[in-house]
């Protein structure tokens, strides 16, 4: 039943105009844990410079998709390809996480994973420094290139902490920051590795409404000012609908729909998936549908 919808929905998003335009693409990615299939032939197409949201009920396989893209998990089947800005194609399937990061994919974690005993500044510097070259020998001897690397990473970390609005919390211990600040810090740390694609796993979880608004702004700025493509997992429908260019819906490891926010909202399979899982989410979707009803006409034109 759902499979029928899948093949249909692939058409809804429209075929990719050009392969070179796709920064990230997967073919039939399948990930199993014993008897459980947490990703089932997932095809993902992410365009360069877009904000693509991945939504779905709990346990749909969203985090598993991130882990497969970033090398934390190795899917049993499928192909994952990343196309860096300067041309070429890199297969990500089964690469080591730090290699994936070096290629240009940075991520945050659903349950925040900061280096909690270090300061905010040190957290970001650690990430920034992975792009610098200063070996242990030159550091021990205090050679100029080691000093320069230290200065560069310091500057970069300061700049990024300012960018996410943590400039007055530089020397605070990461573990004692507020939830919202920890999420921002994790984003700053990911940005410090100079990514082309940023993967955010539920960045709004546990944040308050003001922080949510700031986060929305932040995601837009990352996308426009830094020119980073954003892949976003989020349960907060309002955030998703307002910030995402396109939305992809997962349910039980399968992609059930893909398209502009308004297309996805009206998709019967999506409504069913949400109604079937949680009345609250479903209500949120319905509400947003009503709100965006009149805007959807123009959105649909953009999408195709």
């Amino acid at each position: 039943m759902t499979t029928d919808v899948t093949s249909e929905s692939a058409a809804v998003g429209g075929p990719a105009s050009d392969d070179a335009d796709l920064v990230l693409q997967t073919w039939d990615v399948t990930l199993r844990f014993g008897g459980l299939t947490s990703l089932d032939h997932v095809n993902l197409q992410m365009r360069r410079g877009e904000i693509l949201a991945v939504i779905g009920p709990n346990g749909a396989g969203k985090t598993s998709l991130f882990n497969s893209l970033t090398g934390a998990y190795t899917p049993q089947e499928g192909k994952i390809v990343f196309r860096p800005k300067d041309g070429g194609e890199k297969s990500l399937l089964g690469s080591k996480p730090h290699i994936v990061n070096r290629l240009g994919l940075a991520r945050t974690f659903q349950n925040i994973r900061l280096f909690s005993a270090l300061t905010a500044l040190e957290n970001v510097k650690i990430a920034a420094e992975t792009r610098l070259k200063a070996g242990p020998v030159s550091i021990m001897l205090g050679l100029p290139n080691a000093r320069k690397a230290e200065r560069l990473s310091d500057e970069r970390a300061h700049r990024l902490l300012k960018f996410v609005g943590l400039e007055d919390k530089l020397n605070e211990i990461a573990g004692s920051l507020s939830y919202g600040d920890q999420r921002s810090l994790e984003i700053a740390r990911a940005l410090a590795t100079d990514p082309q694609v940023l993967l955010l796993d539920e960045p709004a979880a546990g944040t308050n409404p003001t922080e949510k608004l700031e986060l929305e702004q932040l995601i837009r700025r990352i996308n426009t000012e830094l020119g980073v493509s954003v892949l976003l997992i989020e349960h907060d429908m309002r955030l998703v609908m307002s910030v995402a260019d396109r939305v992809m819906v997962l349910n039980f490891g399968k992609k059930i729909a893909e398209g502009t926010p308004s297309e996805v909202q009206q998709h019967p399979a999506v409504i069913e998936a949400y109604l079937g899982s949680s009345a609250e989410d479903a209500a949120a979707v319905q509400e947003v549908i009503a709100e965006h009803e009149h805007e959807s006409a123009s959105d649909t034109e953009d999408g195709q």
């Binding site: 996480p97 730090h98 994973r113 005993a117 590795t193």
Partner: peptide
Amino acid sequence: SRVGRAWTAIREDEIAAAANGVD
């Protein structure tokens, strides 16, 4: 230096360290 910080990062959370490019 960066080496000491990378060691601390590995000690505190190896997965997060690797995800942020630490070899």
